[in-house]
């Protein structure tokens, strides 16, 4: 019952809260902001920060360990593992200037699709009618990143079903190379315990540690001479190593603390 009430409050904020409290600011930004895209991204950031504040208040048994370094990332391509639908919202809440790659089908949804384009978010597939959005974004990406913006991407393409790191899509690394941007490798853990894949309800009652941690940074000078396929393997290895460490920690924790 508690899960249902908490879920309803959270989604009420996400839908009605957006319309009532935030949409006027988006409308103002649309008509009056000189830097519309950036203003929208800041608004998205505030909206998601409140979203997670509500989750934290209503689900106190979930502890959050957010690496302060992640909040201060700028001018970078951020790559991370992907466990839950909460992950992109989490990044938006942590980064003031943020772009991401969104599945193209979402750009087909009336109004919402237009908003994604206004936010400067990039369709995953640029064939057909999305090509101009993709072209515009890619042509300005270098300037956007060098002015402090971030592009966060989940190179697995979709949520991991079993926590293992899937094959990585090289798109993120192509963009980083093209823009000569640092690649920040970030690890997310246990967001899937709070909002489980395939479930409607937030899982509020369990004790859980949600972690967001920067595990490595690769600068252009370090990866310039490395091919895209090698770079992809390097990042996969970094994420895979972190995944193994997590498993060891969980097992070690269970040896001493868990009861069957």
């Amino acid at each position: 019952m508690r899960d249902l009430i908490v879920t309803l409050i959270i989604w009420l904020y996400f839908t009605l809260g957006f319309v009532v409290f935030f949409s006027p600011f988006y409308v103002l930004a649309y008509f009056f902001s000189k830097h519309r895209e950036i203003t929208f991204q800041h608004l998205n950031n505030y909206f998601c920060r409140i979203f997670f504040w509500i989750i934290r208040v209503l689900s106190p048994s979930h502890q959050w360990h957010i690496d302060e370094q992640v909040r201060h990332i700028s001018s970078s391509v951020i790559v991370s593992n992907h466990l839950s639908y909460l992950d992109p919202l989490l990044f938006i809440s942590l980064l003031k200037k943020q772009k991401t790659i969104v599945k193209s089908k979402f750009f087909n949804i009336p109004i919402f699709g237009n908003m994604l384009a206004w936010f400067g978010y990039v369709p995953s597939d640029a064939y057909g009618k999305h090509s101009q959005i993709m072209i515009k974004n890619m042509e300005t990406m270098s300037d956007y990143l060098s002015s402090g913006g971030n592009l966060f991407i989940f190179p697995e393409g979709t949520r991991s079903k079993d926590g293992n790191i899937n094959i990585l899509n090289p798109g993120a690394f192509k963009i980083a190379k093209r823009c000569r941007a640092p690649i920040q490798v970030v690890w997310i853990a246990n967001t899937d315990h709070l909002f489980r894949p395939g479930k409607f309800l937030f899982n509020t009652g369990i004790s859980n540690h949600i972690v967001v941690k920067r595990i490595d940074t690769l600068y252009p000078d370090q990866y310039d001479q490395v091919s895209i396929s090698e770079l992809t393997l390097m990042i996969h290895a970094l994420l895979g190593r972190k995944e193994n460490e997590s498993l060891i920690n969980v097992n070690a924790g269970c040896n001493s603390n868990c009861h069957s």
């Binding site: 640029a126 090509s131 798109g171 192509k174």
Partner: peptide
Amino acid sequence: SIDAIELIREIERLVGSELNLEEKDQAM
């Protein structure tokens, strides 16, 4: 798609001029 955009840039270098939007769309 990211490669296709890089290809457009390289083709612009090859032909020595910028492509217009219609030409870029075609390339995609």
